[in-house]
Nucleic acid binder design. Structure first.
Length: 260
DNA sequence: ATGGCGACGCAACGTCGA
């Protein structure tokens, strides 16, 4: 099973790149963030034509999350019932393997937070609290695969110039504490499991030339601990960042091998 | 080099992202 997560920063602009990427990489499920469009204008027909099932929790201008899957998903839910959120930042659905085994795949777009003393940061913390509660209550026996743009660089390895960023938004102790609280629910950071000490990024500011590689690793695929024995690969495809008119984020990928 | 770029809504440039 190949799972990918990509903050596309406008699906309207990035749709051709997303289709190309899917055709080349053949993910079973790809989770998108920042589609920046309403459900009415979502290109379900385009995905249909490519033999893909698509599900969207949409919003114009900001936010918007989607699941694109080779198989039909069940129990698709928009948002978190325990948090009445005007911003469309979460969608989940259950993927059933040929074996009958089920996995709930979650596409999350965690708020950015702007700065530690802003109201947006309070909203980010509230949002993360709700996510923790929601995950705790999802104890129906189906494994949760939590993917998305977390807007948190978990450790110093995940951020260029950790001295200058240290403590600021995306790298603060508070945010990292919440990331660890999520892990403590029984998740593993798939990328870090496979790449113990490598420095790789999933986002690069548009204003700094990509070739300088001043980025952060803020997009993640978190797997239930019990899936660790099946984790074959976890990586970031930063080639998309060098394309013409790129998203500022690159796809992150985890491959699970249930056959051996 | 804490500068700069890109998307959006809207039809000029302010807001937001990370």
């Amino acid at each position: 099973m190949k799972i990918a997560s990509w903050n596309v920063n406008s699906l309207k602009v990035r749709l051709p790149q997303v289709l190309d990427w899917i055709n080349i990489n053949q993910p079973d499920v790809i989770c998108l963030q920042e589609t920046k469009q309403n459900n009415d204008s979502f290109p379900h027909d385009v995905f249909d034509k490519n033999g893909l099932f698509s599900y969207h929790n949409g919003q114009n201008t900001y936010n918007g999350v989607a699941l694109i899957s080779k198989k039909k998903l069940t129990d698709v839910q928009l948002g978190m019932p325990n948090f009445n959120d005007e911003q469309k930042r979460l969608i989940s659905g259950t993927f059933t393997h040929d074996s009958g085994c089920k996995h709930r795949v979650i596409s999350a777009y965690v708020p950015n937070g702007q700065s530690l003393d802003s109201e947006k940061f309070e909203y980010k913390i509230k949002w993360l609290e709700s996510l923790l509660l929601w995950l705790q209550n999802k104890n129906d026996g189906i494994n949760n695969i939590l993917t998305g743009d977390f807007n948190i660089a978990p450790t110093e390895l995940d951020c260029y110039e950790s001295k200058s960023w240290g403590g600021k938004i995306l790298t603060s102790p508070q945010e990292r504490e919440y990331f660890n609280k999520i892990l403590n629910l029984g998740f593993i950071d798939s990328f870090r499991e496979i790449n113990c000490d490598s420095v790789k990024f999933s986002w690069w500011d548009y204003r700094i030339p990509f070739k300088r590689n001043l980025g952060m690793r803020i997009d993640h695929i978190l797997l239930p601990e019990k899936l660790l024995p099946f984790l074959a690969k976890a990586y970031i495809d930063n080639t998309t960042r060098a394309l013409e008119r790129p998203s500022d984020h690159a796809p992150v990928i985890a491959e699970l091998n249930f056959n051996s």
